[in-house]
């Protein structure tokens, strides 16, 4: 499995809430769901923690370092400040201009 997103690609974190569907273990913080960011680095491939947490077979997934602007996330803060967070590929989708405008 190779990384689908290259550094510099604009992505969106899926606005998904597996917490609604039952017991789960999620490493994508709530505050980034639905947010747009930019791929900063491909960090490698790691077994999916969502499976490891339940002792299930855990396929390896690409992991990225993703950069977000801080003020849009909290509607406060200083322009230029940012958040850099590890996010697995299955939580990312391409950011599309049409969605951005919506």
């Amino acid at each position: 499995m190779s990384a689908a997103f290259a550094p510099g690609t604009r992505i969106r974190v899926k606005d998904d809430w597996p917490e609604r569907r039952g017991p789960c273990h999620i490493r994508t913080p709530h505050y980034l769901r639905g947010r747009e960011g930019v791929i900063q680095a491909v960090l490698g491939e790691f077994p999916n923690p969502e499976d490891l947490a339940f002792a299930r077979p855990a396929p390896r997934r690409p992991l990225y370092h993703v950069l977000f602007e801080q003020p849009p996330v909290w509607a406060e803060g200083e322009s230029g400040d940012s958040l850099l967070v590890e996010i697995f590929e299955h939580w990312l989708e391409p950011a599309t201009p049409s969605q951005e405008a919506a």
């Binding site: 960090l43 992991l63 200083e78 400040d81 697995f88």
Partner: peptide, 11 residues
């Protein structure tokens, strides 16, 4: 600029 690194995964 302040860059906050949220350590969420394997690193």
């Amino acid at each position: 600029q302040v860059r906050v690194v949220d350590s969420t995964a394997d690193y």
